[in-house]
Structures are given as structure tokens and as C-alpha cells.
Design a binder for these strands. Structure first.
Lengths: 195, 195
DNA sequence: CTAAGTATACCGACTAGTGAGTATACACAA
DNA sequence: TTGTGTATACTCACTAGTCGGTATACTTAG
């Protein structure tokens, strides 16, 4: 049985991450992942029992880095909660201008697997999005925002809206617009604000 | 040369619509579409020059029906612009509970084709989303909403956020939450309101 | 009015290549 | 000498797209 933390396994997941994010799950073969990792398909199948398993591992590996990046943007921004939230969108817009940017790997995978709701990769995605929503609600609460769960959920919807619509229009103006909307929704709940 | 409005062509597009929406572009073979349409692959290729061509035709056929459905929900709702916008989300939540609901075909296709930004199907999707945004801005303007373009864009972001997040969580509560956020954003621009 | 020609619309069988996953063998460390 | 990790070399199902051919209907020359 393969070791959970073997360096070979990590090499495979790193290769899968590059290819799956760049091309999408369905457009990348297991052969291609093995080649990118510099080993054979048989070795890959020694470490992962199926392609689905590998896909789930790919997303699992993106959970913490994505979360930390968002939290870093929030924490680094100056001003109140509204400005900190807006900073997430501003930074997202900057990232989205990079030619290699292809949206959110979790959402794109969920879209590809929409006909298989119980797929392990979708469960990983669901957990990641919940982690983010929970973190954001806590951060908002710490900065004096009322109804932090509700606001966090609204911001999550706007962020995922950006991810989707960017794949269609490739126009970062939508992200800026979402940032302004998010700031409006936060301000509606700062101090004595009412929705 | 095949006729643009031939009934056979329509049968093929209808079959493609059922299968592509249910399973996703990449998971449906041209053979499967031909079989669903009750004819051979050779005939399908008589009417469409490639699978990509067929995918674009599938989305093109969804543009007007989708638009009309949204407009119908908006028009049928009682109350001001905020209530009419919220009705779109309420109806969307109801539709999303149906077991065959798989999100937005335009967004799911864009997600699958994220590595091919110039793909004809993505252009069709971009046109559709723009059509919707334009219609919504006009409808908001007719109902006394200030900055209708900006509000329409925010609502588009929330709707597409619903479509995405639903594929992850399968929980219509997110759609209700988006509807409340959309209503808040509309009310911020009704009569003398300021964002 | 008819026969030859032509365009439309269709099909069965095929190709060349790719897909996920596997049977078997070998190297090497404990 | 036993078990871990790697490789070569497969299987077999499936994929987009094509080849050659046919049935039908419309056009037009004689």
C-alpha cells in the first residue's frame, strides 16, 4: 500500500494540479498526468486507485492555499470590514488578468461533474466552500459586522458569480462591480445598519 | 448543403440539448446524440460540420427560451422592482429543486471550455449573458431604479453565483439568500436611495 | 411527356487514435 | 526472501470524424 505522504504521490498531485487547472478534468488524460509527473501510468495507479481519486486529491490540495490567499488579502487591507471585503475582489481582479488564470478549480470541476452529485471531488469542493464561508463569517464578526453569516453568504455568492461570469466574458470589470456590491452589502450591516 | 431550418436539424439540436444539459459536453459523444435523435452519425455530420458546431447550436437554441422564462417571472411578480427581482430568485429556487436541474448550461459549458476562450460556444454564451443583462437593466429602468446598468450587473453576478454554488452544495437556501441580497441592492437605488 | 442530370438527405461500416485501467516483471531494501 | 515501488507492454472500449454509396425528388433538354 502506498504511503499517504510519499514524495512521489506529491509529484503526481502537483502535476495533476497544473494540468487539471489549466485544461479541465475531462480534457486531461491519466497518461498526460503521468508524463507531466515524469513517471508511468502504472506508478500513478499504484498511488491512486482511480482518476476520480486523483481529481479529489487535486482539489483537496487546493483547499488550504486558496483559503490562506483570500485571508491574506482580507487581513492586509486597510480600513473597515467593507474595505477589507472589497480588497478581496480587487486582488481577485488582478489575479484574473493573468493569462493562466482559469477561474476557480472547485467550481469548474463541479460544473464538469454536475451529473454526478455524489462524486468525491464535489464533496471536497463543498467542504472548501463551506470552510471559506465560515472563515469569512468569523472575520466579519470580528470587525463589527452584524448578521455575519448572512453577509458572508452574500459575499460568497458574489465571488462565485465573478468566477463564473469571468469564464464567459473575460472582463474583470465584473469583479470590480461585485466588489462594490459586496461593500454595499457589508455597510448595510455595519454598526446600526439594517438590511 | 443542408437547410438551416430543416426538421431533422431541429431533432438533432433537441437531442443534443437533452444530453448536453444532462451530462455535460465532454461526457456526451456524437454517437450518443445521433442515437438520441434516432438517426446515424453520418446524417448528423451532414447537418453540422463538427461537434463544436453542434455545441454552439445547442446553446444558441437556449438563448431566447431562457430569456423569456426570466422575463416571465419578473413580469408576473407583484410589487416594486425589488419584489420583481426577488421573484426571479424565488422561481429559480423552485426550478432548482427539480432533480433534472443541472444549473446553467451556458456557464457549465464555459467552465468545460475554460481553456479555449475563443470557442464558438463561449461566444454564444457571452452574447446570451449580455442579452440578459441588457434586458434586466431596461426592466429596472422602467420600474424607477436608478443606475440600472450597475444594478443589473450586480444581479447578474448574484444569479450566476447561485448557478455555481448550487452545483457544489445543492442547497436552494443559497438562492433565497441571493434573492434577499438582490432586493437589498435594488432598494438601495429606488427613488432617492444611494448606494 | 419523358429521360438524363443534379441536389438533398440519409445510412452502414470504417479509420486512426485515445481513454481508463491492468498483467506481468524487475529492482532493491529490510 | 518478502514486500514496496517502479517500468514495459498490453487490453478493450470508446471517440471524432470520413468513405463510399443510395433513395428520393426536383430540374431541364429533347
Amino acid at each position: 500500500m502506498p504511503e499517504a505522504q510519499s514524495p512521489t504521490r506529491k509529484r503526481i498531485v502537483d502535476a495533476a494540479t497544473r494540468l487539471f487547472y489549466a485544461e479541465g478534468i475531462g480534457r486531461v488524460s491519466v497518461d498526460a498526468v503521468a508524463e507531466e509527473a515524469g513517471l508511468t501510468k502504472r506508478t500513478l495507479y499504484y498511488h491512486f486507485k482511480s482518476k476520480d481519486d486523483l481529481v479529489a486529491a487535486y482539489l483537496d490540495g487546493r483547499d488550504q492555499p486558496n483559503l490562506k490567499r483570500m485571508a491574506g488579502w482580507f487581513d492586509a487591507a486597510e480600513g473597515g470590514a467593507d474595505r477589507k471585503v472589497e480588497a478581496i475582489f480587487t486582488n481577485l481582479a488582478r489575479a484574473a488578468r493573468h493569462p493562466k488564470w482559469k477561474g476557480c478549480g472547485f467550481l469548474r470541476t463541479a460544473a464538469e461533474l454536475a451529473s454526478m452529485p455524489g462524486h468525491p471531488a464535489i464533496k471536497v469542493g463543498s467542504r472548501h466552500k463551506s470552510n471559506f464561508e465560515t472563515w469569512l463569517a468569523g472575520a466579519l464578526s470580528n470587525h463589527g459586522v452584524e448578521e455575519p453569516q448572512a453577509v458572508a453568504r452574500e459575499i460568497v455568492l458574489l465571488i462565485d458569480g465573478c468566477f463564473s461570469i469571468m469564464l464567459i466574458h473575460r472582463n474583470p470589470d465584473y469583479i470590480e462591480a461585485a466588489g462594490r456590491a459586496a461593500a454595499t452589502l457589508v455597510r448595510a450591516r455595519i454598526s446600526s445598519g439594517k438590511a
